[in-house]
Amino acid sequence: MSVDIVRSVAELRARVADWRSEGARIAVVPTMGALHEGHLTLVREAMARAERVVTTLFVNPRQFNSAADLAAYPRTEESDARKLAALGEGLVLFAPDGDEMYPPGFSTGVSVAGVGEGLCGAGRPGHFDGVATVVTKLLLIAGADAAMFGEKDFQQLQVVRRLASDLNLPTEIVGCATVREPDGLALSSRNVRLSAEARLQAAALPRALFAAARRLEAGDPPAAVLAEGEAAILAAGFARVEYLELRAEEALAPLAAPDRPARLLAAAWIDEVRLIDNVPVAPATPGADGA
């Protein structure tokens, strides 16, 4: 069994037109490849929602702030195709090259204010402009009825939701729960770059987040909770905590306390690898201990 690989926009659009003529519903799963179980979970969700599924594989240069980071990003198309083929029939892998996505003279960009600011947007200037531009193109190229995005990249998910709403794109944006290793570390293509020791230490990031979330929900003072959470991450072997913040879930506005559905989001560096994660935080219980 093999997956059907499409390289050009014109060919994918021809496939989409055929599927539409058959009355098929179409879902798309945008990725940069190096597929792991988190990605495959998104594909399975797409298969449950649509008759035809397009998984995209494009390492988007416009969302990288570092040429070295772009060069180091894993490229594993052959193994990615095998993993997709194992999921069943009817899947297409759209794997264009840079010139196909950004032909000579390309000069248009999509920028999302508000949810794209702060957090990863502060540490990676222009990153979400690159994400928003390529995702807009992929949704339009695939003619998608639905698109799957993981909640691990929660700010990215909210950026995509906002652009789809603002631009009236006829695509349902579906957020899927973060897939984790048994020790809690969120699955990421970057995890393979960790040394054996750093990989063990990295599990301290989700441990600190879940512990802090429980304390916030119990009414503990947010400033102390965040400071102690950052200290725990650093004590575990991380070199730097880029941010650890409490934000409103819907619009990602900074919160002084979890008085509405919220997310605790973090980015931290270990073994020269930048890891991100987030966990939900329910509104604090009135009158809870520590309030």
Rank of each mutant, 00 (worst) to 15 (best):
D69C: 10
A81W: 00
M47E: 05
T31D: 02
A68L: 15
N65W: 02
R13V: 04
T55W: 02
P74V: 03
A71Q: 13
Q63T: 12
A46I: 12
G33C: 09
T41N: 10
H39I: 00
A46M: 10
L12N: 03
R13G: 13
S79T: 15
M32F: 13
R20V: 07
R49H: 11
L42S: 03
V53S: 05
G23P: 00
V53Y: 04
E11N: 14
A71W: 12
E51M: 04
N60Y: 10
R20F: 02
Y73L: 01
A50S: 06
M32D: 00
W19E: 08
S66K: 03
A67F: 09
A17W: 04
V53F: 04
E45L: 09
D80A: 09
A34M: 09
S79K: 15
T31Y: 03
R82V: 09
V28A: 12
N60R: 04
N60Q: 08
S79R: 15
P30R: 09
N65P: 08
E37C: 12
A46Q: 07
A68F: 14
D18M: 12
R44K: 12
G33F: 06
S66R: 08
A17Y: 07
I26K: 03
T56F: 08
V43R: 00
H36S: 01
E78M: 13
L42A: 04
R25T: 14
F58V: 03
V29P: 00
G33D: 05
L42Q: 05
R25Q: 14
G38E: 03
V53G: 06
A81S: 09
E11G: 12
V43C: 01
E11D: 15
L57T: 07
V29G: 01
V43M: 00
V28K: 07
A24H: 13
P61K: 10
H36D: 01
D18F: 05
R15M: 13
